[in-house]
Amino acid sequence: MRHIISILMENEPGALSRVVGLFSQRNYNIESLNVAPTEDPTLSRLTVTTTGDDRVIEQITKHLNKLIDVVKLVDLTEGQHIERELMLVKVKALGAARDEVKRTADIFRAQVVDVTPNLYTVQITGDASKLDAFLQAMAPVGILEVARTGVSGIARGDKVLSL
């Protein structure tokens, strides 16, 4: 099962390497990872997507909680949540394909954010499967470069991850 775990941790040097190190040290899997400071500059929020059965996920959250730099965490997949990822894609846009790329981008509610005579740079947000679908649709045209942020997420409703 795929899980999205969001972590509030001390915005300290070395904190990230402890989290990432834990995954490799204990043979857990990281599918995607993103991290940035929060509105409180002493805290970073890290979101990791991982896979494993209940026993593995239980161990992952327990070991993460044990890290001194980890202040709080939540497994978003345990409840209703919103999941988003941002992707920037450079696709070939020559001749007839130029219109086709724009049309497809519109269908996916993506935006063209940069243009050259040869290519479009498209920005798209959504959950991971939407981004995958967009890449599939663009494949015949010619994908030149992909930059994905990895999944970020937040719980639906009144539930808040904060101190």
Binding site: P13, G14, S17, R18, G21, Q25, I68
Partner: peptide, 14 residues
């Protein structure tokens, strides 16, 4: 040494 010992310490400081 913080990196080297990371998997075998409870915590470390620089």
């Amino acid at each position: 040494i913080i990196g080297v010992t990371r998997p075998v310490v409870k915590h470390s400081f620089s």
